[in-house]
Simulated assay, not measured.
Amino acid sequence: MKRRTFLASSAAMAGIAATGAPAFAQDDPLKIGFIYVGPVGDMGWSYQHDQGRQAIEAEYGDKIQTKFIESVPEGPDAERALTSLALEGHELIFATSFGYMDSVINVAAKFPNVKFEHCTGYKRAENVGTYDARFYQGRAIQGTIAGRMTKSNKIGYIGSFPIPEVIQGINAAYIHAKKVNPDVQISVVWAYTWFDPAKEADAAAALIADGVDVILQHTDSTAPQAKAQEAGNVITFGQASDMSNFAPKPRVSSTIDNWAPYYKGRVAAALEGSWKADATWGGIDSGMVKIGEITDAVPAEVKQEAEALIEAIRSGSYHPFTGPLKKQDGSDWLAEGEVADDATLAGLNFYVEGISAEIPG
């Protein structure tokens, strides 16, 4: 997408609505920027965010202009990319990776009339909102399928970084695999990357060599799917997007991040002058988390069980973190019927009982 000139219209920047949001001249398009941690062609995380960007272009037409910068590393490069977008006149900027958090806060302080949205973060300001998805709900579904389908009783998990969002997913997958298969074990390999096909392939290979026959991942490429396909007897789950090129096997289902409705709503608020720095954490009930097709590689009774769990989570009749649950060290966490609160989950830094792996310091 070509670079556009900076909007210097005083009318666009001078009027401040009661919410503190700038009022835009109606005949000027709202300029919206995105930064992605991976390439838009990763077929995972960044791909799904870019699908959301394309959805707002289709929805709002010439009322908006969008630009994205892909493969932006977390750290100083992110701060430079955000600053560049702000200087180019982008009035609404979406930063789509956890490690962009401090960069967003720093740049937002320098551009108080620009609205920033940070995905998966928790730091907010007058002009910084946050949004996240309850990925752990999808992991509960995957854990149920994994526990039923494993023949070795060994499932593997490729983690990106040991942050609460990822730890939630590991715990949710294990809890639900264990519910349906008391003999199941889980192994965790940390890739220390969001997107690096070579590292992800190596992680998958290490798990397969250890006897794992089901792999879950919180990294963004399809490399683990390809490695499982080579092995022939390993099943996987799509991460962030459907990864349906690997269906019906090894990819037997997926957790899909559906950002389009959220992006449409936030753009509408910016256009109307009603935007506020909110915190959103959506799940299956809101459609922010979707479960991809469960393929025919999954036995019919297992598919039925997974679909019942999806509906229970959607309706609110079941929460994936419901007691009794103990921490890894055997101490009590949740009593019978007790549900973990959002504050605890947002800061989750321990495994549940039964996981033998250690969380890196």
Rank of each mutant, 00 (worst) to 15 (best):
residue 262 Y to E: 08
residue 60 Y to D: 11
residue 131 Y to C: 00
residue 219 T to S: 09
residue 345 L to I: 08
residue 101 M to Q: 13
residue 166 V to D: 06
residue 148 R to H: 07
residue 278 D to A: 02
residue 195 F to I: 09
residue 298 V to C: 01
residue 202 D to P: 05
residue 34 F to A: 04
residue 221 S to C: 10
residue 208 I to P: 03
residue 308 A to V: 11
residue 110 K to P: 06
residue 84 S to Q: 14
residue 115 K to A: 00
residue 46 S to W: 00
residue 288 M to I: 09
residue 195 F to H: 11
residue 347 G to D: 12
residue 51 Q to T: 11
residue 205 A to P: 02
residue 187 S to H: 15
residue 1 M to P: 07
residue 187 S to W: 12
residue 48 Q to F: 10
residue 33 G to H: 02
residue 316 G to P: 12
residue 131 Y to W: 10
residue 296 D to V: 12
residue 294 I to G: 01
residue 191 A to E: 05
residue 135 F to S: 06
residue 351 Y to D: 07
residue 350 F to G: 05
residue 245 N to S: 14
residue 172 A to D: 06
residue 339 V to T: 14
residue 23 A to N: 08
residue 94 F to W: 03
residue 138 G to F: 04
residue 181 N to D: 03
residue 281 W to F: 05
residue 145 I to Q: 03
residue 154 K to V: 00
residue 265 G to D: 04
residue 331 S to Q: 10
residue 24 F to T: 03
residue 150 T to Q: 02
residue 124 R to G: 00
residue 318 Y to N: 04
residue 87 L to W: 09
residue 170 I to C: 08
residue 23 A to R: 14
residue 108 A to V: 07
residue 178 K to R: 15
residue 282 G to N: 04
residue 219 T to E: 10
residue 354 G to H: 04
residue 128 V to W: 00
residue 220 D to P: 07
residue 234 V to D: 02
residue 80 R to T: 15
residue 306 A to D: 01
residue 246 F to E: 01
residue 361 G to T: 10
residue 21 A to F: 03
residue 178 K to Y: 13
residue 252 V to S: 08
residue 155 I to D: 05
residue 219 T to W: 14
residue 94 F to I: 02
residue 116 F to D: 00
residue 239 Q to S: 11
residue 26 Q to V: 12
residue 57 E to A: 09
residue 15 G to W: 15
residue 17 A to I: 05
residue 19 T to Q: 04
residue 170 I to P: 06
residue 245 N to R: 14
residue 239 Q to F: 14
residue 157 Y to F: 15
residue 276 K to Q: 14
